[in-house]
Design a binder for these strands. Structure first.
Lengths: 349, 349
DNA sequence: TTGAAAGCGTTACCAA
DNA sequence: TTGGTAACGCTTTCAA
């Protein structure tokens, strides 16, 4: 029913067919479609009728090739099945629909950056890898459409206030009376987290540093010590959260609270604590970061620092459209985070 | 750094540029790129060198417009942030990469079906809505590329053995000694679930019926009664699972085990049981369906019927490529399900 | 083995 | 207000 091979297909419906049917020239049809001024109302109507009668749709490829704007935006993301990216994409898809653009999503890697570049009027990058391969860069950057990125470097980066978010989390824990607060960062085996001023080139590394700074400074301004043995690193997976928590909770004087730089890792930490016979939040409080859908669905529901991911995706597309349509743009300020209090944190006993 | 507007862009690199550089005609470059036989080795090498020196990439739009094959496949899915679709897409992306195709994903709805149609050499539909709007169908189905669908109708549908999966789940529960087994289906407020032979037009409804049939027949062959009050319906959300479980567990003689037609609903059921003071699995056993990532990540880890979603996505793309390349194809048999035993089921006490 | 011509469906530009 | 012409970058077809 739906499937039909190109072999036996009737010729595609073109601008010419519509023009013929409306008794005008192809150019007039084009002008009507593109909302150009200077078409008599009657003519316009005749064309419109012919379009709806035939069910004609413009061919975006031909349109692009001919130099027109194609109303296609693309998203490049390293992993399509990660909740972080999914949320951003969801917001982006909403905005695109609202603004009358089509949104196509591709998994980044390989040669597809150039495909996007030729296909789309604008590109949204989600968590682009720290070092864009030079291989892609030295191929001539001709015809490069506007690029906006969420959680990664570009001329128009969208990011969250990581420092502020970390402060929110730690201050919440401090306010609950905790004095031994551990930190699980998202910077697995990265050297020199404690050391200042490492290169801020990589978006992710920079995020990690900002969150660590928030942790460190919040502790300091509460008069609490910053212990290196209370800082562990993970890679945002649940398993890495378990490993890090295991290390932390086996310390002679283990933390009574954990600030974890990602929801999946936080859930891992909670499960490990439970395996150790600890009750969350009575024996151990845990705060996550991101507020992915799993945070609310978990038991105990996770207290976490919310990144407005859908909103960021939405706003990123809005900016991209401004760029595509050559309007003036302002670089976005970092998005504020909010603390979502749920059931994984309680007063220190 | 990455962003550069079209305005000041150098002219795009074309086949002609490469041809000039290699000292041959554009056609020869085209022939080399497309692996056509009959190009002298030396000439071929000269062209290849020119290509890599310039970093040239074919423009897929132009290629398509000119009637060539474009090695782009597209996926249309109603919700990009649902785990079900994410898993299928992940598998599809792997297969596409392996086979040298680009995969683009779009959220279905609106006019984008026709965009896909013109852009891609083949289309993969994931969970297409039950009734394809006639609006899209009466527009001339010209140039329609091959279509394959996962969990929905098409000439080449990919689905799982829903009946067998349900049998697996119920037999597992029966084997554990349970005699009061409830069922939460994915067919919210759908009339006549108990009634046979409702139209099998909708993929989802059909799935639901098949799973119910597995439940009913497994119960029957175990000599157990099929009680209508033990059957509830949800819409695959966690909340609907909670609602259905609440109804079931408040029955005078509540079930001691639940077979739930989706992992998120199953988790909702477990959480509701816990809220009622029940222990899972000691007081209530729960089996889910799908084996989404959350099933393994939850506590207690969910025993569930696994659909090989990534594999289905992978195989769907393989089939699509066969279709695109005009090879002979066989329609796929339903994929087998497997029972993944985890921690949400135990012997009836 | 190579290349010239024509055309895919659309839009920019400019003349009528 | 309308429409002709050229061009976008590529492939098909066919001739050299």
């Amino acid at each position: 029913m739906l499937s039909k091979t190109t072999a036996d297909a009737p010729a595609a419906l073109t601008l010419n067919d519509v023009a013929q049917r409306a008794g005008v020239s192809p150019m007039t049809v084009s002008n009507v479609i593109n909302g150009k001024a200077g078409v008599r109302a009657a003519t316009r109507q005749r064309v419109l009728d012919a379009i709806s009668e035939t069910g004609y749709r413009v061919n975006p490829m031909a349109r692009t090739l001919a130099g027109g704007r194609n109303r296609i935006l693309s998203v490049l993301t390293p992993q399509m099945n990660q909740p972080y990216a999914s949320e951003v994409v969801q917001g982006a898809a909403n905005a695109a629909q609202r603004l009358g653009y089509e949104l196509i999503v591709m998994r980044s890697g390989g040669s597809n950056f150039s495909v996007m570049t030729q296909l789309a009027a604008g590109v949204l990058l989600i968590q682009p890898p720290p070092l864009p391969h030079r291989g892609d860069q030295d191929l001539r950057t001709d015809r490069l459409p506007p690029v906006v990125s969420v959680d990664g470097p570009s001329d128009h980066p969208f990011m969250v206030d990581n420092y502020g978010g970390a402060c929110l989390a730690v201050q919440h824990l401090v306010g609950l009376g905790h004095t031994r607060i551990g930190f699980i960062s998202g910077l697995e085996a990265e050297p020199g987290v404690a050391a200042e001023g490492a290169g801020a080139s990589s978006g992710q590394r920079n995020d990690a540093h900002e969150r660590f700074r928030g942790y460190r400074e919040s502790l300091a301004s509460a008069g609490l010590p910053v212990l290196t043995e209370y800082v562990q690193h993970g890679d945002f997976t649940k398993e890495s959260g378990e490993r890090a928590a295991q290390h932390l909770l086996r310390l002679p004087r283990p933390p009574t609270a954990l600030f974890v730089s990602g929801d999946a890792m936080a859930l891992g930490a909670i499960h490990l604590a439970q395996d150790l016979g600890l009750h969350v939040p009575d024996d151990l409080s845990v705060v996550g970061f991101d507020d992915l859908p799993i945070a609310a669905a978990a038991r105990p529901a996770l207290t976490t620092v919310r990144q407005p991911l859908q909103e960021m995706g939405d706003r990123a597309i809005e900016l991209l459209v401004e760029l595509v349509e050559h309007r003036a743009v302002v670089c976005p300020a970092p998005f504020p985070t909010t603390l979502i209090q749920r059931d994984s944190t309680a007063a220190c006993r």
